[in-house]
């Protein structure tokens, strides 16, 4: 039975009395044990507090192992960024373009060729008029990127496009782009399909 505090018993006639029994030891101990268990559990199976460890994975290492380590080429991340900024609006995130308007880049027979020679020209000066891509006809215009993009940007985005969405192709270098930029600096207008076909692919 609890010991009752005198004060409340006397002064507090109508209000309930308060016992002064200390908090039970079992509760304090149990709380200590459970908090300890919480800390241990969070450290051991909290996925190292890593933002990428979800669900079935236990550690960041497991997440990594679920994905064979990928060594990304230098151009991948910057190239994807340029693509996401300048090209995605027309050629779409999945490279599929828009039927009848913008030709696809994914598996395009203009992109999947031996060298980036023609593609560099397309990006530098743009392209207009009738165009056959994968045996489909287009007739639209793409603007020039000569003034907006640096040699490095163009090399990166072209390398990226040539290796994304199932495309396979060699990377372009900034030096290559620079050479073509200088060679075509007086061109002034967009390319046409006929002109480009004169240019060797490599």
């Amino acid at each position: 039975m609890s010991e009752l505090s005198n004060k409340s018993a006397v002064e507090n006639d109508s209000e309930p009395k308060v016992g002064l029994t200390p908090a039970p030891l079992w509760a304090v101990t149990l709380l200590g044990i459970l908090v300890y268990a919480l800390i241990v559990r969070s450290i051991n199976s909290g996925g190292d507090f890593d933002p990428n460890v979800y669900g079935r994975f236990e550690t960041p290492k497991e997440v990594q192992d679920g994905h064979p380590a990928v060594v990304l080429p230098d151009w991948f991340v910057p190239g994807r960024k340029v693509y996401g900024t300048y090209c995605v609006g027309c050629h779409q995130g999945n490279g599929a373009g828009a039927p009848g308007q913008f030709p696809p880049l994914a598996k395009s027979d203009w992109v999947n060729v031996e060298g980036p020679n023609r593609m560099v020209r397309i990006v530098l000066n743009g392209l207009q008029g009738p165009l056959k891509v994968n045996a489909v006809d287009y007739n639209n215009a793409m603007l020039a990127w000569r003034d907006q993009l640096t040699d490095q940007d163009i090399a990166n985005v072209i390398s990226y496009v040539r290796n994304e969405w199932g495309n396979k192709g060699s990377a372009a270098t900034a030096a290559e782009v620079k050479a073509i930029r200088d060679a075509t600096k007086d061109k002034g207008e967009q390319w046409t399909e006929g002109q480009l076909l004169q240019i060797p692919v490599k």
């Binding site: 994905h67 990928v70 990304l72 999945n94 994304e164």
Partner: peptide
């Protein structure tokens, strides 16, 4: 960009997407 194309050998119709 989802990881398909770089992680696995690209399969037919398996295109990357933002």
């Amino acid at each position: 960009v989802q990881l398909q194309p770089l992680n696995r050998p690209p399969a037919e119709g398996d295109v990357g997407e933002i």
